[in-house]
C-alpha cells in the first residue's frame, strides 16, 4: 500500500544536510512568529486581549485532537475518522445533557465512552479486518457521521440548560481550562511515549511493523490502543467544543485552524512526524497547531472569503506533506 513510486536521496555534504535539517525542524517556530507579527499589523482586532484568548482556546481544542492523533501516526496508523468521532461525541454530549437531563460528570463519561467505542470499532476493522488504517477509518467515518446524523435528526441541538459551559470553561490563573487540559494531554502523551514500555512499543510498531512483531511487541494491541487514544482525544475535544458554543457542533464545513483530521494531520506533519510512523517528537506539534490556528484566525479577521481560507488550508496540507517527504529524503 505504501509503496512509493520514486525514491531518491538528496546528495548533500554533511554540514549542508545538518543545516537543512535544522531549518526544517525549527523553521516552524520562525514562520509562526512571522505570521503572528504580520497579522498583528494587517488584521484588525487581531492583537487584542480578547482575540488572543480566542486563539489560545481554538489552538487548545485543535491541540487536544492533535495530541491523540500524533500517537496514532507514531504507531503508523493514519486515522481519518476524527470528524466522525467528533460528530458522535458532540451529538452525544448535547443529547445527554440537554434532552436526557443527565448530570455533567455522567454526560462527560458517556461521551468519552462513545469515543472509546468508536476507537475500538476502528481497531476491530483495522486489526481483525487486516485493512490499512487510512482506508479503514475513511470507511468507519462514514458510518459514524451517519450515526451522529441519525441521533440528532440532522438538527443542531442548542443547549439551554445551564452548567455545561460554566463548569468546563473556568479560568485557572487567568488561563481557560481547555488550555490546561491540552497541556495535561501533552504531558501525559510525552510521559507515555518517552517513559513507558507502551511508548517504546508504539514507536517500534510504527517504524517497522514486521520487525516489531517478530521481536515480540504485541503489535495488534498497540494499534488498538493507539486508535482508541486518537478517538478518545477527539471525543474530549468534542465535549469542549460543544460546551464552548453551547450547541452540538456541525462538522460539515471545516476551516483553517478548526478541529478536524485535516488540521491534525497538517499539524503532525508540520511538527516533523513521518507519514509512515516511527519518528517524531510530540512537543513540536504544539507550535504547528498554534501556527494553523493563527493562520485561520487572522484570515478570518481580515474578512478573507471562506473559499480562500479553504484553499490556503489545502495548500498547508500539501506543503506539510511535501516537507515531511523532503525531510525523510534528506535525513
Amino acid at each position: 500500500m505504501l509503496e512509493r513510486i520514486t525514491q531518491g536521496e538528496v546528495a548533500l555534504s554533511g554540514r549542508r544536510r545538518a543545516q537543512l535539517l535544522f531549518l526544517m525542524d525549527n523553521g516552524i517556530y520562525v514562520v509562526t512568529i512571522l505570521l503572528f507579527v504580520l497579522f498583528a499589523f494587517l488584521a484588525p482586532h487581531f492583537f487584542t486581549p480578547r482575540n488572543l484568548v480566542n486563539i489560545l482556546i481554538s489552538a487548545s481544542l485543535a491541540g487536544i485532537v492533535t495530541a491523540g492523533y500524533t500517537v496514532a501516526i507514531l504507531a503508523g496508523q493514519i486515522d481519518t475518522s476524527t470528524q466522525g468521532v467528533l460528530a458522535i461525541a458532540t451529538v452525544a454530549t448535547a443529547l445527554l445533557f440537554q434532552e436526557a437531563g443527565f448530570s455533567l460528570p455522567l454526560t462527560v463519561i458517556l461521551a468519552l465512552t462513545a469515543g472509546i467505542a468508536a476507537g475500538l470499532f476502528n481497531g476491530v476493522i483495522v486489526v481483525n479486518g487486516k485493512i490499512v488504517a487510512f482506508v479503514a477509518t475513511l470507511a468507519t467515518q462514514g458510518v459514524m457521521l451517519a450515526i451522529a446524523l441519525f441521533l440528532s435528526g440532522g438538527q443542531t441541538i442548542t443547549i439551554t440548560r445551564a452548567g455545561l459551559q460554566e463548569a468546563v470553561f473556568v479560568r485557572m490563573f487567568g488561563i481557560p481550562s481547555s488550555v490546561w487540559i491540552m497541556f495535561f494531554c501533552y504531558l501525559l502523551g510525552w510521559i507515555m511515549l518517552t517513559q513507558t514500555k507502551l511508548g517504546a512499543h508504539i514507536y517500534a510498531t510504527g517504524a517497522d511493523y514486521r520487525a516489531a512483531r517478530l521481536s515480540g511487541v504485541p503489535v495488534d494491541r498497540v494499534i488498538r490502543i493507539a486508535l482508541v487514544i486518537s478517538a478518545l482525544t477527539a471525543a474530549l475535544t468534542a465535549i469542549l467544543v460543544t460546551a464552548r458554543s453551547k450547541q452540538s457542533a456541525l462538522f460539515g464545513l471545516a476551516i483553517a485552524g478548526s478541529v478536524d483530521f485535516v488540521t491534525a494531520l497538517t499539524a503532525v506533519l508540520l511538527g516533523g512526524f513521518s507519514l509512515f510512523g516511527g519518528v517524531g517528537r510530540i512537543e513540536r506539534n504544539l507550535v504547528a497547531v498554534l501556527f494553523l490556528t493563527i493562520l485561520g484566525n487572522g484570515l478570518q479577521l481580515m474578512n478573507v472569503p471562506t473559499g480562500i481560507v479553504l484553499v490556503v488550508r489545502g495548500f498547508a496540507l500539501v506543503s506539510a506533506v511535501i516537507l515531511s517527504v523532503l525531510r525523510a529524503r534528506v535525513a
Binding site: V262, P305, T306, G307, I308, V309, L310, V311, V312, R313, G314, F315, L317, V318, V321
Partner: peptide, 12 residues
C-alpha cells in the same frame, strides 16, 4: 490534499 484544495477552489 488535492481534494481539500479543489473543494476550496469550488468554494472560492
Amino acid at each position: 490534499a488535492v481534494g481539500v484544495v479543489s473543494g476550496g477552489i469550488g468554494f472560492l
